[in-house]
Amino acid sequence: MIPRDCTPLGLVLVTLAAIAVVVLPGPKPESKAAAIPSLTDVWPDARIGTEAVTGAPYTPLAYLDSGVSAGITRANDSIRLTLGDRVVREVPPSGSPRFVLSQAPDALVWLELSDVTRAGSLWRAGPLGENPVRVTSDVGRVVLLESQYDLVVHDGQVSWMAVRGDATEVRTVALSGGPVTVTPLSGDFALTAWPFATSAAIEQAGPSELVDVRDGRSTKVDGQSVELVDCTPSWCRVQVLRQSGTARFDLMRPDGSERRRVGGKGIRPAFGDVVVLDRYAVVVDDDRGALVLYDTVSGRMADLATEFGTVLARGPFVWWSEGGNEALTWRVLDLRTLKGSA
């Protein structure tokens, strides 16, 4: 589990150094690490697009395709949400506004939040960013985990998670507007693939939990006292701890089946989501300074980049920054182009 942006939400941080570590049985380490091939060595048809940034700093929040993105441009006098060449919204920088974006086939949906209070409003626009309207200001104190599930569009509605006291609550409203419905959950949770919520305590080792927010049915995911477990309904990420950090990085199904080792020490998640497209895990190999893609179907790993900064994912796209503000470039991989393997 990676550190999460939930400090004002009252979640408890358990530091890795404070956890008593025992040695767990696991795969024996190889005497020499196998070389990891490049992405195109494994998937010759893989397509990585490039988006160069000129002028004010720009961060893509979603891609329509590998060449068109929606994102945030920060200037001294304004913050602009853009989609391609269209300015969708422009707000003053006071209050450090933050945007959380999601997409539907016929709409662009986003939260505008204060970076301090996590309160704000929910907006929608047409699929190309046209005709923006405020849907509601009843958003609560929103949970943000830098995940594609921070804001989930489903069944003509949109849902997000907020904090109230010691509980979290699923908030849902129709895309057309109207009252916000609230479903409380006892404890710390975040949304994952709809209709599930997942345990969201920061760096909390041990078992995890998946809850169907429609009926409240809960599924416990076993985890040892030295394991950090993050889950979606399809895959769980397991980081086996030791006093100096992570000893092993595994993936498994929520029922504990199909557990496999992805890597040893030095491997960590690149972002909050466990997998993308229910198949691919994106990790950072700190020992080699590489951004790596792991395929749960074939078990193959491939290097995406050896120079990277911010790494994000949404839908079928994974993207990362290269360079600094003076010469910033975004590389974007369309995972749908990975057809077959070498």
Rank of each mutant, 00 (worst) to 15 (best):
I2R: 10
L11N: 07
V14W: 03
V14H: 06
T15G: 04
L16H: 00
A20S: 10
V21K: 03
V23T: 12
G26C: 09
S31A: 07
S31W: 04
I36Y: 00
V42P: 02
A46E: 02
R47P: 04
A52D: 14
G55E: 12
P60S: 11
L61I: 09
L61E: 15
A62L: 03
A62M: 08
L64T: 14
D65K: 05
S69A: 13
A70P: 06
A70Y: 02
T73G: 11
R74N: 14
R74Y: 06
N76A: 14
I79D: 07
L81V: 03
L83F: 06
D85E: 15
R86Q: 12
V88M: 06
V91M: 09
P92S: 08
P97V: 11
P97K: 09
S102H: 01
Q103F: 01
D106W: 01
A107P: 07
S114G: 15
R118F: 05
R118S: 10
A119E: 15
A119S: 13
R124L: 00
L128A: 14
E130D: 14
E130A: 11
P132R: 05
V135K: 02
T136R: 10
E146K: 06
Y149M: 03
V152M: 01
V153T: 11
W160D: 08
M161I: 13
V170E: 01
V170P: 01
T172P: 00
T172G: 01
L175G: 07
G177I: 00
V182E: 07
S186P: 00
S186T: 14
A193C: 04
W194S: 14
W194E: 15
F196P: 05
A197M: 02
I202L: 09
E203D: 11
P207E: 09
S208H: 07
V213A: 09
R214W: 03
S218M: 12
S218G: 12
T219S: 10
K220L: 15
V221A: 03
G223S: 05
Q224N: 14
E227L: 06
E227M: 11
L228I: 09
L228G: 14
T232A: 07
P233K: 06
W235M: 14
C236L: 05
R237F: 06
R237M: 08
Q239K: 09
L241N: 09
Q243A: 10
S244G: 03
F249E: 13
L251Q: 00
L251W: 03
M252Y: 05
R253I: 11
D255M: 02
G256I: 07
G263R: 02
I267H: 01
P269A: 10
V276P: 08
V276C: 10
V284P: 07
D285L: 03
A290Y: 03
V292E: 09
D295H: 04
D295S: 02
R300I: 06
A305W: 00
A305G: 13
F308R: 05
G309K: 00
A313T: 14
F317L: 10
V318A: 08
G324W: 02
G324A: 15
N325Q: 10
E326N: 12
L328D: 09
T329G: 08
W330Q: 07
W330M: 01
D334S: 07
D334I: 10
R336P: 11
K339E: 15
K339R: 13
S341V: 10
A342L: 03
